[in-house]
């Protein structure tokens, strides 16, 4: 029995592992951030959650398809699991970024202060396309501000200051935007790839439904039944003897007429 429970527990732990691993606050759709930096941000968030009960979520995208970055950011924050977070959206192909603060984040820092912080630390490296440096610089400065209020500090082994300052971890420009596979890359080109894909599927289904027109018209069974009823009403004389053709004749007649009048199901 103990073995069985152990096996069940192991299975549960293993199955829960992927979801725990994928619960990163960084959604790097444009593939511009170093995975090591993403890991650092996750460690940073772990501390931040304990100290101030919110996280910093980051979304990188190539384009927004003409949508206003501020509108997109606010909508994205609302759709996050934890909408109390601070959300930073970086639109690489449009050289634009925006920040939105959820309720928990606003308890500790104002929107204006974050904007100022971004202008001081993030803007220049972002426009220079040093995205890792931009994010790391912002987080390091953010930590300094929050430290005074909440006692929050960076994890001891954090490499964020390295990413913010040192040349050794800066990515060469050619790899700042690596060639990406079509299925991965297109997600960050459309404003909402999944929604567009759903629309396309719906359109395809609607067009097929309209073309086939399955629901309309009488089925073969209904036609045969109507033909038989008509035979019963009109196909016999009052003395019960047959008048004209038999039931099959009436059924085939109804079938022919249904074609002529367009009643038959296709």
């Amino acid at each position: 029995m103990k073995r069985f429970i152990c096996v069940i527990l192991c299975v549960l732990i293993v199955s829960a592992l992927p979801s725990a691993l994928s619960a990163s606050a960084v959604d790097d759709q444009a593939l511009v951030l170093n995975p090591a930096l993403t890991a650092e941000i996750d460690a940073f968030n772990l501390q931040l959650r304990l100290a101030a009960d919110f996280e910093i979520s980051i979304i990188t995208r190539d384009f927004l398809g003409g949508k206003n970055v501020s509108t997109y950011t606010n909508q994205a924050l609302k759709s996050l699991d934890s909408s109390g977070n601070l959300l930073l959206v970086m639109v690489i192909g449009e050289d634009a970024y925006e920040v939105a603060l959820g309720s928990n984040a606003q308890k500790h820092i104002s929107h204006e202060k974050v904007e100022r912080l971004l202008s001081d630390t993030f803007r220049v490296p972002f426009l220079r396309r040093d995205y890792n440096e931009a994010v790391a610089s912002f987080l390091v400065r953010f930590e300094e501000i929050l430290q005074a209020q909440t006692g929050f500090s960076l994890p001891q082994a954090s490499r964020l200051p390295e990413f913010a300052k040192q040349e050794s971890v800066r990515l060469p420009k050619e790899t700042a935007k690596p060639q990406v596979d079509i299925d991965i890359g297109l997600g960050s080109v459309f404003e909402n790839f999944g929604h567009n894909e759903e629309n396309a599927k719906q359109y395809s289904k609607d067009a097929i439904d309209a073309q086939e027109n399955k629901d309309n018209g009488l089925s073969l069974f209904q036609i045969a039944l109507i033909g038989f009823i008509l035979y019963k009403i009109f196909g016999k004389k009052q003395n019960g003897r047959r008048k004209g053709c038999g039931p099959l004749g009436w059924i085939f007649g109804t079938w022919g007429l249904s074609r002529f009048f367009g009643w038959r199901r296709r």
């Binding site: 190539d62 384009f63 398809g65 003409g66 192909g93 080109v189 567009n196 629309n199 396309a200 359109y203």
Partner: peptide
């Protein structure tokens, strides 16, 4: 179809 055309508009803007 009109809904799907928004993807074309998005790409044009990009």
């Amino acid at each position: 179809l009109r809904e799907v055309l928004t993807a074309r508009i998005e790409m044009g803007n990009n």
